[in-house]
Simulated scan of single mutants.
Amino acid sequence: MMGFSHAVSGAAVWVAVTTTMPGVGIAPLDPLGVLTGAAVCAGAALLPDIDHPSSTVATALPGGRVVAGAVSGVTGGHRGGMHSVLAVIGAILAAVALSFLVWTPPGWEQQLAVGPAIAAAVCIAVGTKCLRIARGWFASWTIGALSAAALMWWFPDQFGWLPACIGLGFVVHLVGDTLTTGGVPWLWPVMPRRPVAFRRTLLITRLWPSRGRFALPVLGNAGSWREWILTVALGLFAATGIVAAAVRLLAPLVA
């Protein structure tokens, strides 16, 4: 999948999980959690591509291209180890670890969740840039930093969902790439060598471990017309949930 599709998918899945209209409400949240979580999950759905020096997330971070090169070398290149179950677990554990990075200002009783705010700022900045909500990196980082700071300052309890949100974004990215011909190595570093061919159908050509990558390529190549149809549908779904959450959030203010 292309970066824009990944970001839209992340936002859509968060809406589906945390709302009942239009989602299924597996883990319902208040409107603020839906809105901020959608932005964070959109950015988190781009994080696996830190193994590519030209990816959105790599170009977003200071020294990101150097980091991406190092990660690529360690994990076997693009769509290597960063696109695996092991990476999902690592991302969740990293988010949990960041939850212990807190600061209590002098004279305050409430701790400020500094670590989660940093993670949220990065994800929101990357997501808003990729979704073209912000034109440039200065604007996207301003949005990310201000949004995360506001949550940290006034709504510190909102960060309880952050590890799940980042983990969900990672999984959405892997699922999206699995639906293309490139596939992903879900079981990395276990790398099956012998391809396993399945019966061909109209859209599904094969499901295989080839070079360790598994694929169910119903979308064809990344950027295909099938992918863009799916992205438009997911975008409309996400927009419906986001607008509904915004209305619920603002309703008490205008009542």
Score class of each variant (00 low, 15 high):
35 L>W: 07
171 V>A: 13
202 L>M: 12
135 R>P: 02
188 W>G: 01
244 A>E: 15
11 A>I: 07
11 A>P: 05
187 L>S: 10
239 A>V: 15
181 T>S: 10
179 L>E: 03
244 A>M: 13
79 R>Y: 06
166 I>N: 00
218 V>A: 14
188 W>A: 04
188 W>K: 01
27 A>R: 09
93 L>C: 14
131 L>A: 00
158 Q>D: 06
211 R>V: 03
215 A>N: 11
98 L>I: 03
10 G>Y: 02
225 W>A: 15
219 L>V: 10
15 V>G: 03
40 V>R: 04
234 L>S: 09
165 C>M: 10
254 V>L: 14
193 R>C: 02
229 I>W: 13
100 F>M: 08
45 A>K: 10
211 R>M: 12
103 W>Y: 15
126 V>R: 02
140 S>K: 03
252 P>H: 07
170 F>S: 00
127 G>A: 07
60 A>Y: 12
205 T>S: 13
185 P>K: 06
136 G>H: 08
143 I>V: 14
248 R>I: 01
39 A>R: 06
119 A>L: 14
173 H>T: 03
17 V>R: 02
23 G>F: 03
106 P>L: 12
151 L>T: 01
184 V>G: 05
128 T>F: 02
48 P>C: 09
56 T>M: 09
7 A>N: 11
208 W>N: 14
78 H>A: 13
